[in-house]
Write a protein that binds this DNA or RNA. Structure first.
Lengths: 196, 196
DNA sequence: GTCTATAGATTGATAGAC
DNA sequence: GTCTATCAATCTATAGAC
């Protein structure tokens, strides 16, 4: 049973892509760490692009789920908070993959253009829903800014002097994003109530 | 007088670095656009790294000025707003350079490590001042998040459906960043009053 | 499945004529 | 200051033996 090797390769690739950047990571480097030769990598993944996609796609799926759900979700403040929380959780659960996009978006865009366009499209849908129906340009911009806030979950480690628990970071960033969206703080409700 | 050629090269490099990413841009590409050969580029800039630094450094200086000023600036809400506004203006005035850091931070970090470390250090100083004296980890995190908000000035073009004037975008993002910092909205005051 | 060997392309950089 | 020509390194990817 050799999904093992495939998985090891993917894990090593994820680590190197996310720390050094996609472009800065060569297949030679990955092969060395795994303990194989470059040629053997190609037995498991047909190209560097295929390897990148294998590493990134699972997260894209999680992202897509959220975007799809918003299609039928009423734009209430409780729901907005829930959607933002889900986005944040996807980010926190997939720090490494998110780091790939953050560290070398240009490289990813070039080698996986279609995947990149998918991500942009998903983001657009999410931002549009977050901004709310008939949102003004200013409100749309606030929606984009709110999602940027979540990115601090990834970068904060570089800047903070003291440690902060993941739970607290999550709470702080969720509140901050809601502040940007100008949605008043509420407990994370489970029900949903129609509004528009 | 041939600062002309030097400047043209720098301008072309800026455009390509910021749109395609630093690593994705080859000297051959730059040379072609300028109308020179690669070899001639090397007469004006001793390396690709030197070219990158020439492109980026002016902005780093503007950034450093802000960080330096905070050293002797009282942490009042009016001053916080003013500092954030200055950061935002540097960003808006140098969208292209900022785009280099945003599109390929990994590539920049590798080829211009010292410059990159300088940027990190400046950012740390700014974040620290923004968070305020004796800030809790949560407040520090909010300071990082507030600066992330400003980054929306660069990315928004990709996502917004309708146009938004630069002036309005500036106003919206400044307010949003202040919301993240939890500093109440005030007019941009010129005086400063001691608070802590 | 893993290996050796190598093709084929591109890159940053240099030498030296003009 | 600009050119032609070229080097040396590195990379992705493939062919074919074992």
């Amino acid at each position: 049973m050799d999904g093992d090797t495939r998985d090891t390769i993917r894990a090593v690739a994820l680590e190197l892509f996310s720390t050094r950047g996609f472009d800065q990571t060569s297949l030679r480097e990955i092969a060395e760490r795994v303990g194989l030769t470059k040629a053997s990598l190609y037995y498991h993944y047909s190209s560097k692009q295929a390897l990148l996609i294998a590493v990134v796609e699972p997260v894209l799926t999680g992202w897509r789920d959220i975007a799809d759900d918003t299609a039928t979700l009423a734009h209430t403040s409780a729901n907005v908070r829930q959607v933002v929380a889900r986005c944040l959780d996807v980010l926190l659960r997939n720090r490494a993959v998110a780091g790939i996009f953050q560290r070398d978006p240009a490289g990813v865009a070039v080698v996986a253009g279609a995947l990149w366009e998918d991500m942009l499209e998903l983001s657009r849908r999410l931002y549009t829903w977050l901004a709310g129906p008939a949102a003004s340009p200013a409100e749309q911009l606030r929606a984009v800014a709110a999602m940027e806030v979540l990115g601090a979950a990834l970068t904060s480690g570089t800047y903070l002097k003291e440690e902060i628990s993941e739970a607290e970071a999550r709470a702080v960033l969720l509140d901050a994003a809601m502040d940007v969206l100008r949605v008043s703080a509420e407990p994370e409700a489970s029900g949903m109530r129609k509004s528009g």
